[in-house]
Each structure stands twice: as structure tokens, then as C-alpha cells.
Amino acid sequence: MTAYLAKRLLIGLATLVVASMVVFAVLEVVPGDPALIMLGMNAEPEALATLREQMGLNQPLLMRYLDWASGMIVGDFGRSYTYSSPVIELIGERAAVSLPLALLSLVLSTVIALPVGIFAASRRGRPADTISMGVAQVGVAIPNFWFALLLIYLFAVWLRLVPAGGFPGWNAGLWPGVKALILPAIALALPQAAILARVTRSAMLEVLGEDYIRTARAKGMPRRVVLWHHALRNALIPVLTILGLQFAFLLAGTIIIENVFYLPGLGRLVFQAITQRDLIVVEGVVMLLVASVVLVNILVDIGYAIVDPRLRTRQ
């Protein structure tokens, strides 16, 4: 187990290093001079040159990479060109929106999807199964930003139950904050729930087809007990995989939704930073997201190993 863990961690670390090189290299070719952007349309050349010098844009590439990469190890992600504040602070501020949003939608989609998937599996082939899977099929096909638009106009503009967008900040209190995240979370959660429900259903069906379940049923165990105790537990592996993948996806996938609801989250931060050529911010956020994906994958693998010891050796 320790050897397996060590290997996974090592691979994760190597992935991060290579990723940091890729990110840095790719973003270096982006056209656009951050200094010019900071000063604006009527900037004078001297002021521009002064600023470029101050921002350290004249240093050689390798130096800048090493500076940046070594800084990250100790938590220093550099300073934003556009906001002139430390990137790590910006990320912290924005993560306070994105993280709860991703968590909320993850919870929502799980709460919706698991019961629906299990229910459908237990009614295989019956109308309830057909209808719920039909709905799930449509849910998978709905672009979340379109769904978000419909939600805004229904609940915010028409019924005025929740704000149409924006985020009051957690200082304003827990409820106003959560209220602002409800619609975006629903918009994000629905298509994910549809996928998850389908996975849950097929995983359950697969398990229900196994011999030991048949045996349990044959021994006269009640259907409910078989379903919830034996089948679900074993069906959880693929479900957990998808959940793990989905969390990383949600964190990054908030870009569009945060733009629809103009939430000041990581997605908006990085989207704005890309258009404003605030490369140091883009690099920081992307690295953080990559790191979280890598971490989630390791956790999922460890989870596997715990749930199913056979997998340890197979890797």
C-alpha cells in the first residue's frame, strides 16, 4: 500500500512539474503587452517603458519561469498585473465563491441523482425507469448556460425570488451568500445529475446481475435490504469515480456559469485574466486547478484501493 501510494504521489508530482512548464510556455506566446494594457489607450511610450521595467517584463524567460515556479512552492504566486495585488490573495477571495458553488452543486446533483438512479434500476424496464431515464437523457443534452438563462428569467426576473446574479460577499451573511449561489448551483448541477443518475442506474444494474445478489434474493432477503445494503455499496465505485471527476470538472466548469451570473469566482477571474492578458493570474489559477485534479485523482485511487484491495496489485 505504501509503495503504491508513493508511486501515485510521485507521478502526481511529475505531472504538476510538466504541467507548470506547459502552462508557462504556452502563455508566453500570448500576444499582448500587460504594461500597455495597464496604462490604457493614451499611454505615452516613456511611461510604458518605465512600467515594463518595474514589472520585470524585461528579464529572460528562464529566469522568470524559475522565479515563478519556485515562488509557487512557498505559496507565492506572484502579483497580478491588472489588480496589483498578490495572485494568491485573489485566488483566495475567488475560491471563497467557487468552492462553495462547486460543493453545493455537487451535493445537489448527488442528492438528486443517487435516488433517481437507484429507483430507476429497481424498476428496470417499467414506465418509471423509462421516464426518469428519458428525463436524464434530456438533462445530459441541455447546455448548462442555456438552462441558467431560463432559470434567471423565471426565478429572478419574473418571480424575483433570488438575485439575478452577483455575489454580496460572505460578510453580508450566510443566507444572502447562499441565496446568490442557489441558481448557479442548480444550473451546474442539473446536467451533472443527469449523468450521475445514468451511471448510478447502470452500476446498480450491473451489480444486481451479480451472482451474490441473486443468492441473497434467493435466500429470501427483502428487496429493500438487498438494494440498499449490498447492491448500492458495490455500485458506489463507479459512482465515486464520476463524482471525483465531476468535482474537478465543476470547479473549472464554473467559468461559463460564473459569467452568466457574474459571480466573482475563479472561473470569472481566469476568464477576465485571459482577456486582459494578466498572465500571471491565469498561470496561477490553471496550476491550482491542475493540482486539484491531480489530487482528486489520487484520492479516488486511494479510495479504490481501500474499497477493493484487488485493485492495488493490478495497478
Binding site: 424575483r160 439575478a164 452568466v260
Partner: peptide
């Protein structure tokens, strides 16, 4: 409020 898509609902909802 970056664009009309966000501005209109924000105005109509009183935010």
C-alpha cells in the same frame, strides 16, 4: 456588471 445580459436582470430585480 459587465454586460447587458447581467445588467438587465440586476436592474429589474432591484439589486
Amino acid at each position: 456588471v459587465p454586460d447587458a445580459a447581467a445588467a438587465i436582470p440586476a436592474l429589474l430585480s432591484g439589486d
